[in-house]
């Protein structure tokens, strides 16, 4: 079971924070297929956020096929987001390491590299491609 932490100062909508924290837990393997998410009541009692927000987040996760609600039992993880390719000792990671070394040799600072990576990632995501639809804002 995981616990959600809502950052009140952040401009990110609370429902999106729940979705993102669940996705991250799935990516890191903290949540696995068959695990139960806390009930909406448990979440609102612990975080004091609006119940509709929690229900919206769970609907969103269900729509993405990550969890399923079983009547009277709770909400369960259906699909994991953990990818073997994103672990530390893979080929992709090694290539990224090489690229980072070249970027540093070219005189880029940490922030420059991070900005460059993010902008390239944004460009990639902006390009049309068969992919599950992203969350609307």
């Amino acid at each position: 079971m995981i616990e959600f932490r809502i950052d009140r100062g952040s401009g990110v909508a609370a429902y999106l924070q729940i979705v993102q924290q669940t996705e991250q837990a799935l990516r890191m393997g903290v949540l696995r297929v068959g695990d139960r998410l806390p009930t909406a009541r448990e979440v609102v009692e612990a975080t004091a956020i609006n119940p509709n927000t929690v229900l919206k987040a769970y609907r969103e996760l269900e729509r993405a096929g990550l969890v399923e609600a079983r009547r009277g039992l709770g909400t369960f993880v259906r699909r994991s987001l953990a990818r073997p390719e994103s672990e530390t000792d893979t080929a992709l990671r090694a290539e990224l390491g090489d690229w980072l070394a070249r970027a540093r040799d070219a005189g880029l600072e940490r922030e420059d590299i991070s900005a460059l990576f993010t902008s390239a990632l944004d460009a990639l995501e902006a390009a049309p491609r068969a992919h599950p639809p992203q969350k609307d804002t």
Binding site: A40, R41, V44, E45, A46, T47, A48, I49, N50, P51
Partner: peptide, 14 residues
């Protein structure tokens, strides 16, 4: 405050 709001939100849901 947080505890009270948590209880209130749970009541709203129930």
């Amino acid at each position: 405050r947080e505890e009270f709001m948590g209880t209130l939100m749970a009541e709203v849901l129930d």
